[in-house]
Amino acid sequence: MKRRIFLKSASATLAMGGLGLHAVLATAADGADAFAWSRARADTLVGQSFWLNHPESGAMAVTLAAVLAPARLDPHLDQFSLVFRAAGKPLVVDGIYDMDHPAIGRFALHLTPAGVDANGASFRSDFTLLT
């Protein structure tokens, strides 16, 4: 990876992280309950529809197909991967996307393409959270 691309990606990630933190802090200050990711909460969302807001293609319907956990679990970490499915072959590259869900609202999520088959495309988002 070229240094320039790495630096652009890193700065975008930091900027998006800062924006997300600001939104969570603003919500907490208002006294509203903000959604906090965990493997247990993600499991309750399997099969539900989300909207991926693609900067070029617009809103794309995706479904949370699975929540995967590593074979070896660390008692101090909550590690899991969200696997989303989309019909067709949407052009989604590795990056941060705004997502919408009726109960959660809008949030940013880093997605990585995970393959294409006859049923459509898969995207993965990996989490490692301290417990």
Rank of each mutant, 00 (worst) to 15 (best):
A108C: 08
H54R: 08
F84C: 03
W37A: 03
T63R: 06
M60I: 15
L45N: 05
W51Q: 05
T63C: 09
M99P: 02
L91R: 07
V92D: 05
L91G: 08
V62G: 07
Q48D: 01
A23I: 06
A26V: 09
A28I: 00
P90H: 08
M60A: 12
D100L: 02
R85A: 07
H54L: 09
D43A: 15
G95A: 09
L109M: 14
Y97W: 06
A59D: 15
F84L: 06
H22Y: 09
P102L: 03
V67Y: 10
Y97F: 07
G95E: 11
Q48R: 13
F80G: 07
H101C: 01
H54C: 06
L25Y: 09
R39A: 14
A29F: 14
L45Y: 04
A114C: 05
F80S: 03
L45Q: 11
A42N: 04
A34F: 05
L77G: 01
A71L: 15
R85F: 01
F84R: 02
V67G: 01
S81T: 00
L82E: 04
L25D: 08
A36I: 00
Q79F: 06
A87H: 04
F84A: 01
E56M: 06
F50V: 00
P75L: 12
D94G: 06
H110R: 10
R72G: 05
P70H: 10
L91V: 09
V24W: 05
A66C: 09
L77N: 02
F80T: 02
L73Q: 14
M99W: 02
A59P: 09
A42S: 13
A66D: 14
A71W: 13
K89V: 10
F80W: 11
M60P: 03
E56F: 03
R85S: 08
L91C: 01
R72P: 00
Q48M: 05
T44S: 10
A71G: 10
I104E: 11
A71D: 12
A26E: 14
Q79L: 11
P113C: 02
G31T: 11
S38Q: 12
P102C: 03
A59Q: 15
R39N: 08
L68R: 11
A65N: 08
G31V: 12
I96K: 01
A61S: 15
L109C: 08
H101K: 02
G105V: 03
V93G: 14
S38I: 11
L25R: 10
A66R: 13
A69N: 05
A32T: 01
A32H: 10
Q48E: 15
T63Q: 09
A71H: 13
T63M: 11
L111W: 03
S57F: 00
K89F: 04
V46F: 08
A34W: 00
S81R: 09
T27H: 07
L64D: 02
V67W: 07
P55M: 13
D94S: 14
H76Y: 12
H54N: 15
